[in-house]
Design a protein around this nucleic acid. Structure first.
Lengths: 350, 350
DNA sequence: ATGAAAGCGCTAACAA
DNA sequence: TTGTTAGCGCTTTCAT
């Protein structure tokens, strides 16, 4: 008897109406808290709903009105920073009438297109795109179809709201901190990027830009040293290896993300080096990993949780009023100095 | 002109039918690769679909047939083990006709009820529940409504398939490894559990059970030492603190999950101790964290990726045939010995 | 092989 | 305030 039980017909609005002895419309109105249902009506209907254990079909609702569903597109579930953002979104939506469903795309434009389409096909009421790599044109197209908030990507649009961190300033904080400690040769591991739009809009590009600007501002133009890999642990590992192979090694490495710093750790350990004794190391994001005792990574806090809360709020506002002008929220990052940065040592150096 | 653009009417099956000069039924048949559409018909319809950029509404489809949507319920997005499972699921579903949407519940029964309901309300074709904490009754109810595969929870059911790891054996591997190194006082940090069903079915309970059995089997009954906290970093931290306060400290700690071991590291560092010099440390899950160079944690690999692949496969099978008998897949874990375990030292000990 | 037509469970005019 | 009814975009009998 496992499968194929009696085809448990789901309770529908018709059942509720019949059971309560009212019209279908009446039930619908109560469900939506719409105008035109007397208190007694409300009570009767709610009682019937309760007794029958009725739950409205989001599918059927979606065909006419809304599905009460919000989609979140994550670039990478392993990067704890995105979990922080997600927590913020969840917290703001909790208790409300919207359900959150998410999907993952690892910096893959084709995947993003597929998934945003899938969300639109499922009549989602709104979507939050976290650090999407899609073209501007594509983002605009999505946003014109469904209420959209873009998180972690710069660039204004009349079609979607944005929530970002001031990545240029964040990179500046790191460089300032290291320069103050006495470092002059500060290397940066960036996420490789060639697309001109992404070069302007993606956080990784802005961090690299902020790094260069800050180095110049501190009179350290000669100490600028950038390697391009990717914002992954492997990218950090490979990037650090390249830096360690330099004739003159940098005294500090600014990894564009904490996850990159993890890879740098790998390479350092492999080379018998450690931070900050041999090389100072800083990351970006202030993930739980960075705070972890044995690591204690100096990093930049960009308040992912708050970004999530703001994104959810903006999305609900936009769903409520599709025509309201778009907003661009830019949060200010702060430096979290921990144990992986210190004054440069001369140990073993020529 | 931001919001409210011309209410961009979506292309529907009617548009396609008209454009191709055929009936709506014909288009539907082509969409579903159903029987009764000639090659020419196929060609005509596909051309129209292509030209118009038509995408079927999953919402409308769901009202009659399937939504081509599979839901995954994750307990904790920060635990990288679950990301491994998810990767496996994604990989198996990739390229198919099903879309995967996920949601997170932090070991919260109420949240699980809400989200499984939400998935059912959205007419999802199937759901994969990862390490759910809900009651058996609830899981059965869900499974009778929608095709379900439960991952990481023991206990057979005629209503859902299961994919698990042999947690008892896994715990045995750790104890065996530590015993072989010469440890006799091996402590275990478990996830606190009182519910009688979960005490039987949850992996954490099985690991604790396997630990006890293995300790006895190795003649180390006197060395059994369990502290109950939770499978979180904080749980590991608090558990380790309690163990370090013992009159006689254990020479090894078996943390029930890698994330717990992370917290143990915190506590050790704080106490000025390190692994394996002062205390050996082992985890469970073989997450990327465990493999991370500076950590190099001894742990148990339970092949999360493979579990995900299997879960997806079982789910597709069940969707195809709701009546097929349920399967219980139990994978065998392997030990991954790294640098945090070694022979017990007598340093500083009485 | 093809198409007409009846719903699926809701929402939203509109009428009463 | 309440109820009737026409769809929403599909799938699926059932004729042809």
């Amino acid at each position: 008897m496992p499968g194929q039980p009696n085809p448990v017909r789901r309770i529908t609005i018709v059942d509720v109406a019949r059971h309560a002895g009212v019209s279908i419309t009446a039930v619908s109105k109560v469900l939506r808290n719409a105008y035109g249902a007397s208190p007694e009506m409300q009570t009767k209907v709610r009682a019937a709903i309760e007794q029958l254990g009725y739950r409205p079909s989001a599918t059927a609702r979606g065909l006419r009105g809304r599905t009460y569903t919000i989609g979140v597109l994550l670039p990478e579930i392993r990067n704890p920073f995105f979990a922080d953002v997600l927590d913020g979104v969840t917290e703001h939506l909790d208790g409300g009438e919207y359900q959150l469903l998410m999907a993952q795309c690892r910096n893959d434009e084709a995947c993003e297109a597929r998934l945003t389409d899938a969300m639109i096909d499922r009549s989602m009421d709104g979507v939050i795109l976290i650090a999407p790599v899609s073209s501007r044109r594509r983002l605009q197209a999505v946003a014109r179809t469904v209420s959209t908030v873009v998180v972690g990507r710069h660039g204004h649009s009349a079609d979607y709201d944005t929530v970002t961190d001031d990545d240029v300033a964040g990179a500046g904080l790191v460089v300032g901190h290291l320069a103050e400690l006495g470092h002059r040769h500060i290397a940066h591991i960036e996420h490789f990027e060639t697309d001109p739009v992404r070069l302007t809009e993606m956080p990784n590009a802005q961090r690299a830009d902020g790094y260069r600007r800050a180095m110049n501002a501190h009179g350290l133009a000669d100490g600028i040293d950038v390697v391009s890999t990717s914002y992954t642990q492997e990218g950090g590992y490979l990037g650090a290896q390249r830096l360690l192979d330099r004739e003159v090694q940098p005294t500090a490495i600014f990894a564009g993300a904490d996850i990159v710093a993890m890879g740098v750790f790998d390479a350092l350990t492999e080379a018998g080096l450690s931070a900050p004794e041999d090389i100072s190391l800083a990351g970006y994001d202030n993930t739980t990993f960075a705070a972890f005792g044995p690591i204690s990574l100096t990093t930049v806090d960009q308040a992912g949780h708050q970004m999530g809360v703001d994104a959810a709020r903006l999305l609900l506002d936009r769903i409520a009023d599709r025509a309201k002008p778009t907003a661009q929220l830019k949060l200010s990052p702060t430096l979290v100095a921990r144990r992986t940065t210190a004054a440069p040592s001369t140990r073993g150096r020529i």
